[in-house]
Design a binder for these strands. Structure first.
Length: 520
RNA sequence: GCCCAGGUAGUGUAGUGGCCUAUCAUGACGGCCUGUCACGCCGUCGACACGGAUUCGAAUUCCGUCCUGGGCGCCA
């Protein structure tokens, strides 16, 4: 490992700082093992259990006790566990956000966000995922090595800065570091494939080509921090409601539901497909007696669509609950949406501010509009009139969304345009207990009470022109005691997209898979 | 699958037959500058997707290829 040392670090006398790696057994080369540094560093910047950058800012009135009861589930909101966003897992350096005007001395590691050279004075903005800090270099006052390194550093290089913190009104965050040491840990090539400082915009295509750089932008990173909170909050919420977290196969034998196109793959000597939905498997877990399950996982659709709201690989949050009907699971879905919005609002204030969105928690209950009424509303607004049995066009969805102006359900769909497993109303079988959850912009989720009667299910499969034989692995679970059940599937990307008012669904996924893109 | 729009320095753009060895911004490089915060100023560098055609002359028109964006369809 010692041989790996490069001349970038050559001038540094302190061997314990070798950034090249975890020297054997003791963890990180940067661990705070030097007596002097231990003394000079501020008191532990990480309060136990604190989420350094997800916690609400001081004075923001973070008071879980004041929240409506339905929002007070679990620990994420209350910051009692480190959680997935905690920066304090490693102690190689101080997270930039933890450097305050009161900090005396700090060592930070981050990316060079911007450089402004004023001649005798130059400013470096150093960024990590917690924030940005200004490093000020008065050329006549810093060591010659620092000056030398500062001359050679390029934007987006990773640098280590160690120095005294000064409280300066004029500096961003009211503080800056004057370096005693400055090392280039990893030099960035130039020019950059896109401008991380966001002075010049980049097209989505360029951005995805260099997604690792694109997500360095604080604005883009904020989307994914929030997405993380969305899924964490949803999981926590569902667990609190007694749902069991399951995973189901993504490689399946047959086109199980008809309808959407599947991606074929080679599975040894057999043909197989990428699964379009966990639907059949989560229903099978009702037969297994799990009573309530959820899964967050990928789904694959081989449709050649080319729109800002479709992906060929998406993330679905699927829920299935026994001894429940469509109304019960709509209530659950509504509660989940409100909970997730609430969690994001409470814990991601910085990210919301970064994105400049107005994130209001939707009010319960969401209106439940029968399909026939939805058609009427749409027909008052759109040119292309819909008739009974038509699915809603994107224009119709938007027209209804404009009228309703908030999240809403469309209920009581014609049985013919819903999947075979949707439960028809016994007294009017042309309608079924299916629903869609709509955001004013688009569909977020669809679900239904399912058919739990074997023979009725077989009849419905036949009526759809499908063959019950190819569903035997599924149908047999209905012959040994299948409870009544209901459930839904929710598109995570669409949830994030509508929550943050993103113009393109690709913004809500790190590495989108669409009609043309397979890399990176 | 159908339709529409597009491809110009690393990035984002202007440019609809000669005014273009191509505009502006950002960037990189060099120089000046001690409180910037999209720092400022001076200078330099860097591009017309590919192939063919029309024309005295093509970034610009036409044809083909490749690539891209979007709408619709499709999408429980």
């Amino acid at each position: 490992m010692a041989g790996a040392r490069t001349d970038l670090q050559g001038q540094r006398p302190d061997h314990q700082h070798d950034p090249h790696l975890p020297s054997g057994g003791r963890g990180y080369g940067w661990s705070l093992d030097d007596g002097h540094r231990r003394r000079s560093l501020p008191v532990a910047p990480h309060l136990p259990g604190q989420l350094p950058f997800f916690s609400a800012p001081p004075g923001a009135g973070h008071n879980p006790a004041a929240l409506p009861e339905q929002l007070q589930v679990g620990s994420i909101r209350q910051n009692t566990s480190p959680g997935p966003h905690c920066t304090q897992v490693f102690h190689m350096r101080l997270p930039i956000r933890a450097v305050t005007p009161k900090t005396e001395f700090a060592e930070i590691i981050g990316w060079v966000h911007e450089v402004r050279d004023l001649g005798g004075l130059s400013f470096f903005l150093i960024r990590d995922r917690t924030g940005i800090i200004q490093v000020t270099i008065p050329k006549k006052k810093v060591p010659a090595e620092v000056l030398d390194t500062a001359r050679n550093v390029s934007r987006e290089s990773v640098v280590r800065v160690r120095g005294r913190v000064k409280a300066i009104e004029k500096a961003p965050g009211g503080r800056e570091i004057v370096p005693e040491e400055l090392d280039i840990i990893s030099i960035a090539e130039s020019p950059l494939p896109l401008d991380v400082a966001e002075k010049v915009p980049a097209e989505m295509d360029t951005r995805i080509d260099s997604r690792f750089l694109d997500v360095r932008k604080p604005r883009v990173r904020a989307i994914f921090f929030i997405r993380s909170m969305v899924t964490c909050a949803a999981m926590e919420f569902l667990a609190s409601r007694g749902c069991i977290n399951i995973t189901t196969p993504k490689i399946v034998a047959a086109a199980t539901e008809g309808g959407t196109e599947l991606f074929p793959i080679a599975y040894f000597e057999k043909e197989a497909f990428m699964n379009q939905s966990p639907q059949l498997y989560k229903q099978m877990m009702m037969a297994a007696g799990f009573e309530a399950v959820f899964e967050i996982g990928p789904i694959f659709r081989a449709e050649e669509h080319n729109t800002i709201r479709h992906l060929n690989e998406a993330t679905s949050l699927d829920v299935e609950v026994s001894f429940a009907d469509h109304n019960d699971v709509m209530d659950l879905l509504e509660d989940l949406i409100v909970h997730v919005y609430g969690c994001v609002r409470e814990t991601c204030a910085d990210q919301i501010a970064e994105l400049g969105v107005d994130l209001t928690v939707p009010a319960k209950p969401f209106p439940r509009i029968p399909y026939t009424e939805a058609i009427d509303i749409a027909n008052r607004a759109v040119e292309e009139k819909l008739s009974f049995g038509d699915d809603l066009s994107p224009a119709a969805e938007r027209a209804i969304g404009d009228v309703i102006g908030q999240h809403y359900f469309i209920v009581d769909w014609p049985t013919d345009i819903r999947p075979y497993y949707a439960m028809p109303y016994p007294d009017r079988p042309e309608f079924c207990k299916a629903f869609d959850l709509m955001h004013p912009r688009m569909e977020l989720s669809s679900g239904a009470q399912r058919i739990h009667d074997h023979d009725l299910l077989v009849a419905r499969i036949r009526a759809k022109g499908l063959s019950p034989e190819s569903f035997e692995f599924y149908l047999r679970t209905f012959r040994y005691g299948m409870p009544p059940h209901a459930g839904w599937g929710l598109g995570i990307e669409r949830l994030v997209m509508t929550m943050l008012d993103l113009s393109n669904i690709r913004e809500a996924v790190l590495f989108p898979r669409d009609r043309h893109r397979l890399m990176p």
